[in-house]
Write a protein that binds this DNA or RNA. Structure first.
Lengths: 265, 265
DNA sequence: TCATTAATAATCAAATATAATCATATTTGA
DNA sequence: TCAAATATGATTATATTTGATTATTAATGA
């Protein structure tokens, strides 16, 4: 009955949203070129996407509502579920030794950890996150950035150019973020991002995945790693017992606040 | 003369906010230049941004209200001699073609150039400057960062770790800063910084040294390059005729703003 | 204080973008 | 296959945005 969902229009919607996610703001003219369609159609599409809440229509084009890109970097996703993220960051912080060399990935939980490290002058931080770099720019640990191409949505440097830097470095601990984690498999939205994550984890003695419980059971596009006996998950107490059991079977250590407390430190 | 302006209000808002974040305070006139739009429009935009709470309007311009918590409190040389630097940046900007791949070094003149590039979506910028990266983080050209260790005083990534990234890349033009330039010899304070500068210049087809006249005649610690027939100096009109003659002998092209061009308001 | 200068607000015409309308092309269901 | 329904692009009328012009208002200094 509704022929609108035959795929063609939705395909345009997907393109428009992808374009917006990448750029933050796009004009109708630019979208005409990208989608190869007339202005009238773009306007109709934008009206629909605006009604769905996927974009915000402005005179001359549209603004992305999905990513916080056009929002100031300091007011961001980190505020949502900030409490859980802070708890996770605190748990991770306890694992960092003063003279360690650690890797910090992108993602808000990891960023929360970075915030706790500003006094650790002997620490060496390796990162591919522009946010982390900005945070530790003026003072703090020795900082090394991984070369690569900026992925604006995640504000991380990713892709093949990250390889030569990463392969030269060995870190004691890698603190990783993820978009999804289901059945012990980490997934993310971008292949280049996934590639970099995998390389980093190879160079780390210990890998810690920092994921609040909203990430658990979620599946994204590209696989970027797998939890096993040689790495750990740091999460909040919202983890299901089913997940817990599954990870235990795999030999993955799960670190949560409640567990720490039960063990008596 | 400026690049094709999309004319999207939101795009202007983003630029204004970026400019404010960078400088803290900015005048309406300055914003007119940066955004390439009339005073009336800037005033209307500032009124809107003030209503949204993103900036605070004051007589003659606006001040930044957004928390600078995460921002590096990097004492900015850019505020000193800002006019000369802006002139130099404009001269350099004219040399950038839409599809170029360019390298941007650290230093305030180069940073001023970066500020002019936010509309050039087809450009590829390679940089080792955290400041440049921060400036182009939310929108603008394709951006690639060079891996390396952060040197806090210059906010650049330098040293041996920069080698693998740099050696993989070839750029059309490299825009370089320097601490000192005397007798055509560039010097800087740090060996690691010098090393990276030299490597970058090797990978560039054309090298442009951006140095305001206060840098001329100055000598610092480590040599990091030499001006010759295959590269150019972009500077202000404060350059001495003696320097000019010397550089001409070496075959270096000197680019300054001619007096005819300089008639302002 | 007042005079002077600079900045702003208000107004209006030109340039742009949008919405409404209609003709054409495409898809769907028989 | 056809006819009905829908989507698209072109056209035109309407609305919005912009920059120039002009009055007002605010800042500055003697």
């Amino acid at each position: 009955m509704n022929t609108a969902n035959t795929g063609l229009a939705e395909e345009r919607f997907r393109k428009i949203r992808a374009c917006l996610k990448e750029r933050g703001v796009v004009s109708v003219d630019e979208l005409c070129e990208v989608v190869a369609v007339s202005g009238a159609t773009i306007r109709r599409d934008l009206a629909e996407l605006d009604a769905r809440g996927h974009v915000r229509r402005v005179h001359g084009g549209a603004v992305c509502t999905e990513s916080q890109l056009d929002e100031p970097v300091f007011d961001d996703k980190a505020k949502i579920a900030a409490d859980e993220k802070h708890v996770i960051a605190e748990l991770a912080f306890k694992l960092v030794a003063p003279n360690d060399t650690i890797f910090l990935d992108g993602g808000s939980s990891v960023l929360a950890l970075a915030r706790l490290l500003t006094d650790m002058r002997k620490l060496t931080v390796v990162t591919n996150s522009l946010r982390v770099a900005g945070l530790l720019a003026s003072a703090g640990p020795r900082m090394i950035i991984v070369g690569g191409e900026l992925r604006r949505i995640s504000q991380t440097f990713v892709g093949p150019l990250t390889k030569p830097t990463i392969k030269q470095l060995n870190v004691d601990k890698a603190f990783m973020g993820t978009i999804g984690l289901k059945d012990g498999v980490m997934t993310t939205t971008d292949p280049a991002e996934a590639m970099t994550k995998e390389m980093v984890m190879e160079q780390a003695r210990d890998v810690y995945l920092m994921a609040d419980s909203s990430k658990l059971e979620k599946v994204s596009f590209v696989k970027c790693g797998e939890l096993n006996a040689s790495n750990s998950l740091i999460t909040d107490s919202g983890i299901s017992s089913k997940q817990m059991k599954l990870l235990k079977e795999k030999g993955t250590k799960v670190i949560t606040k409640s567990k720490q407390e039960k063990k008596g430190k």
